[in-house]
């Protein structure tokens, strides 16, 4: 027996490709991520429906929320939210027209509006918003709903 034993290299799993795998996942999530650009000021509990279709082209969709304000101090009557702010009914047309200006002119015809309305809201305000949308010449509309059970 010699005094100096040669140490056998221990069996290891090569982790050299681990960063590559992790990077792959990272890129996937980076591409998929859509940062939430707005804070929901209303309580919106969406209804369910069976004939729902997937919404495409998120950049061509303007969202309008209708529901009861989250903050109790703002009252219980339903309010309208566009982008980050409460909007009065008579401001809806202007606000929607402003959203349209963000899209290039050749794609404006493909724009649509998605209405996210709380299921307990009465139809009066929804009908009023629909009339405002027609005034703003935005005819394509989605009633956003959860798929039925």
């Amino acid at each position: 027996m010699s005094k100096f034993t040669i140490r056998k290299p221990t069996a290891t799993v090569s982790t050299a490709s681990l960063p590559d795998i992790v990077f792959m996942l990272l890129f996937f999530f980076m591409v998929v991520t859509v940062f939430r650009d707005q804070q929901l000021l209303l309580r919106v509990d969406l209804p369910r429906a069976s004939q729902v279709q997937k919404l495409r082209h998120r950049s061509l969709i303007s969202e309008i929320y209708i529901g009861q304000p989250r903050e109790a101090a703002l009252g219980a009557s339903p309010a309208i939210q566009i982008n980050d702010a409460f909007i009065r009914l008579d401001q809806v047309q202007v606000a929607v027209r402003q959203l349209v200006t963000h899209t290039p002119e050749d794609q404006r015809g493909r724009r649509s509006t998605s209405l996210k309305v709380d299921q307990k809201v009465e139809m009066g305000i929804v009908g009023d918003v629909k009339t405002e949308l027609r005034k703003a010449e935005q005819y394509q509309l989605h009633y956003v709903a959860l798929p039925a059970y």
């Binding site: 729902v52 629909k130 005819y139 009633y143």
Partner: peptide
């Protein structure tokens, strides 16, 4: 993955 019921409003 928003889903919705598609509606086309008539012009005023």
């Amino acid at each position: 993955n928003d889903r919705g019921i598609l509606v086309r409003l008539p012009p005023l």
